[in-house]
Structures are given as structure tokens and as C-alpha cells.
Simulated assay, not measured.
Amino acid sequence: MDPRAYRKVVGRFATGVTIVTTRVGDVDHAMTVNSFTSVSLDPLLVLFCAEKVARFHDAVLEAGAWGVSVLPASMEDASRFFAHRGRPLDGQLARWAHHRGESGVALFDGALATVECTTKSVYDGGDHSIVVGQVTALGTPGDGPPLLYHEGRYNSF
């Protein structure tokens, strides 16, 4: 199979956009993720996929706790920023209002929804790891149309 054809086909599935955050020591890590989904209601489980070569991958596995901020259309700039590889970690959250959740991870104040998790399981997913988390806290800090990603472009309702 041609990887370009595969990306074109799966890109036709519109997804929401999130930023997943974690904290190792006193260093915040964050990454734009559109592979976030609900898994189970009993127990409450969600998952996201992290590319194994990404700096975030090792940080989230080491930390064991992470947060998800579901982005509104107004936060496309944040999504683009946290999708960029190799950016400096120091001060990376300073441009966007955020707060610490119950687990100590950063959550964006403008998010449509927030979810905090502890890692329950990690599965091999080829060049990604599938990280399953037990939900420990929830929030709905903001409102507005969601940020969507479809066919390689940002969109909203």
C-alpha cells in the first residue's frame, strides 16, 4: 500500500483537535493530537496515540499522568504551535492561558473540555504507542465551535 494514498483516505475522516499535556519534574510537555477518543464508560477510559520518536512519547510514559484539552476553533494557533517538532520546552505554555489540573498537568483555559488521566495501559501501534488512560477529572471551561481537522486542513462548523 502507498502511504500517501493511505493518508489521503484516512484524512477524509474529520477529527477534533486536542492538546495533550504532561509534566515530568517541573518541565511541561505538550503535543497536538487528533487521535484522541473515548474508549469505555465503565471504567472511564480514553486513549490517544503518540509517535514513538516524538519527545512527548517518552515524557508521557515516564509521567504516568496526562491531560487533554479539546480545542475550540479560536485556538488553531495553539494547535499549530504544539504540532511543531523541536520547539523549546521552556516557556512554551506562556502564550495561552492555562491552569494546573488536579494531577498537576497544564490544561488550557479556553478549551471546550478537559480530561485528566492516569496511564492504565500502553499498546504497540506500529510507529505509535496507543496510550490508554483512566479518567481522573473532567471539565468544561469554554464554549464555542470545535476545531476540526479534515483532509490536511483545519476547519470548524
Results as ranks from 00 to 15, higher is better:
residue 1 M to S: 14
residue 2 D to K: 09
residue 2 D to T: 07
residue 6 Y to G: 10
residue 7 R to T: 00
residue 8 K to D: 10
residue 12 R to I: 04
residue 14 A to F: 01
residue 17 V to F: 06
residue 22 T to M: 00
residue 23 R to D: 05
residue 25 G to T: 08
residue 25 G to W: 10
residue 28 D to P: 03
residue 30 A to I: 03
residue 32 T to Q: 05
residue 38 S to N: 03
residue 38 S to P: 03
residue 39 V to H: 11
residue 44 L to K: 09
residue 45 L to D: 02
residue 46 V to F: 11
residue 52 K to C: 06
residue 52 K to H: 08
residue 52 K to G: 06
residue 52 K to A: 06
residue 54 A to S: 14
residue 54 A to T: 10
residue 57 H to E: 00
residue 58 D to Q: 15
residue 63 A to G: 07
residue 64 G to S: 07
residue 66 W to Y: 15
residue 66 W to F: 15
residue 67 G to R: 02
residue 67 G to I: 01
residue 67 G to P: 02
residue 68 V to K: 00
residue 70 V to Q: 08
residue 70 V to P: 07
residue 71 L to A: 07
residue 72 P to E: 04
residue 74 S to W: 10
residue 75 M to N: 07
residue 76 E to G: 06
residue 76 E to S: 12
residue 77 D to W: 08
residue 78 A to Q: 12
residue 79 S to L: 09
residue 82 F to G: 06
residue 84 H to Q: 15
residue 87 R to F: 01
residue 88 P to L: 01
residue 91 G to N: 02
residue 93 L to Y: 04
residue 94 A to M: 05
residue 94 A to E: 12
residue 96 W to H: 09
residue 97 A to P: 11
residue 101 G to V: 05
residue 110 G to E: 10
residue 111 A to N: 01
residue 112 L to I: 02
residue 114 T to A: 02
residue 115 V to M: 03
residue 116 E to W: 02
residue 116 E to L: 04
residue 117 C to H: 10
residue 118 T to G: 08
residue 121 S to I: 10
residue 121 S to T: 12
residue 122 V to M: 02
residue 123 Y to C: 13
residue 130 I to N: 01
residue 130 I to H: 00
residue 132 V to D: 09
residue 133 G to D: 01
residue 135 V to G: 05
residue 137 A to C: 02
residue 137 A to D: 11
residue 147 L to H: 08
